[in-house]
């Protein structure tokens, strides 16, 4: 990559700059600052869209009484029962039970404290899910708008 070809497509770096390696006119390698590259922005955005899609599905399932609020917070934190189990220390089979609304509603506060601490929210917040999806992309769009 030549120095002049280092892309400067601002996007998702929240105002940060990163270093790219490129060659100058004499063929020497230099470190050139970049605000981003379109190809990367597309790939990153795609990953967040996948999370947003998953959240939409989970919210619908919670509304239909098929899943507990824990499912929402789990997906929001990009986890599945296996990873959540490693983080919270709660056994995977118990987490799968806690994903059922009836079981989750009957849990004592002490049972859900590990989840609340992990996600950095209160026990009450853990039982709460938003009515509609607050897209993780909304924050990113803001970042993009601020940068452009």
């Amino acid at each position: 990559m030549k120095k002049n070809d280092v892309p400067q497509h601002s996007g998702l770096l929240s105002g940060n700059r990163e270093v790219n390696y490129a060659v100058d006119v004499d063929g020497r390698y230099i470190l050139e600052s970049s605000v981003g590259w379109e190809a990367k922005n597309i790939a990153l955005r795609q990953a967040w869209e996948a999370i947003a899609d998953e959240l939409t599905v989970v919210l619908a399932e919670i509304k239909d009484g098929k899943k507990s609020a824990l499912a929402y917070h789990m997906v929001k934190n990009q986890m599945d029962p296996a990873l959540l189990s490693q983080y919270s220390g709660v056994a995977r089979w118990r987490i799968k039970r806690h994903l059922k609304p009836a079981v989750f509603a009957g849990l004592r506060p002490a049972d859900v404290v590990p989840y609340a601490e992990l996600f950095g929210i209160s026990v009450d917040e853990l039982r709460f899910v938003p009515e509609e999806l607050i897209s993780p992309l909304a924050g990113l769009d803001q970042v993009e708008a601020d940068n452009s």
Binding site: E18, Y21, A39, K40, A43, L44, A47
Partner: peptide, 17 residues
């Protein structure tokens, strides 16, 4: 999604391109 993941591993912060 698989394809986007490969791009991220290749280009995301930290590889220098």
């Amino acid at each position: 999604l698989h394809l986007g993941h490969v791009i991220r591993m290749q280009e995301e912060i930290g590889t220098g391109g």
